[in-house]
Amino acid sequence: MNSSDFLGFLSCRSSVREYEETPLADDEINYIMSCASTAPSAGNLEAWDVVVVTDEEVRLALAEAAFGQLHVGEAPALFVVCANYVRSMSQYGERGILYAVEDATIACTYMMLATHARGLHSCWTGAFDEDEVREVLGLPPHIRPLAILATGHGHPPGHLAERMDTGEHVHRDVW
């Protein structure tokens, strides 16, 4: 893939909030997780974990925890991406908290792009009650849920969202 192809690949991805009921095949889930495992991480500690949720009852409970966002309950698969503080703090102390958040965020980005590469659709969901998600999934105290990646065979919106010009983000040498 050349750089133009890559930019095109990124540009045509969008968040999708409407899904078919078709479940994800195990090979699709495995592919997404294999891609996540290639993500860079601080000290190569991979301070992230994922809870893959396909059970309808658990998906609906997570939709409630996500302030009633319907796509979370309707997507056939959810990847709840979590930071694992203990894994990174064992090497980096307090700074390891930040590294675990960064590691999990990068892994989730790779997962989102992997779904796109497979012709699937996803929506990164960060708005949720963290304590409710912890309770629904039985997460241990050193694990922090950062994102719910709703994934499935979806119905993309009719048009892509407008993006800011890159010049709005870039500062050279100093602010």
Rank of each mutant, 00 (worst) to 15 (best):
A107V: 08
V80E: 00
L24F: 03
S88A: 12
Q91D: 06
H159D: 09
L7K: 11
A63M: 10
E28A: 14
V133G: 03
E74H: 15
T54R: 13
F67I: 02
T109F: 07
A83H: 00
S37T: 09
F128M: 04
S122A: 15
S90V: 07
A65K: 05
A63I: 07
T115G: 15
E57R: 15
T115M: 11
T105F: 00
Y110H: 14
L62W: 05
N2Y: 06
Y99T: 01
D5R: 09
H159L: 08
C123T: 05
M164L: 13
A114R: 11
I143D: 02
N84F: 06
T54H: 05
P23R: 01
M33Y: 04
V52H: 00
S4A: 11
V86G: 13
S14V: 10
R172V: 06
S3E: 14
L98V: 09
E46V: 11
L98A: 09
R163A: 02
D49F: 01
M164A: 11
P23Q: 02
Q69F: 01
A100L: 02
E135A: 13
G119L: 08
L78G: 08
T115I: 05
A25R: 15
H121P: 11
D165A: 12
H159E: 14
M111F: 04
W124C: 03
T38I: 13
A65Y: 03
M164Q: 15
A127F: 05
L113D: 05
F6W: 10
V50K: 01
L70Y: 10
S4I: 12
I29K: 08
I143P: 04
I29F: 05
Q91N: 08
G152D: 06
H142T: 13
A104W: 00
P76D: 02
L62D: 02
V101K: 01
H153I: 10
R87C: 00
S88I: 03
V16T: 11
I148N: 01
L62A: 02
A114I: 11
P156M: 09
N30H: 10
M89I: 10
N30Q: 14
V81I: 14
A114P: 09
N84D: 15
C12F: 11
H153M: 05
L149Y: 01
Y99H: 05
A83G: 10
P23Y: 01
L78D: 04
H121F: 09
P23M: 02
E46F: 12
E162G: 06
T54I: 04
D129A: 04
V58I: 15
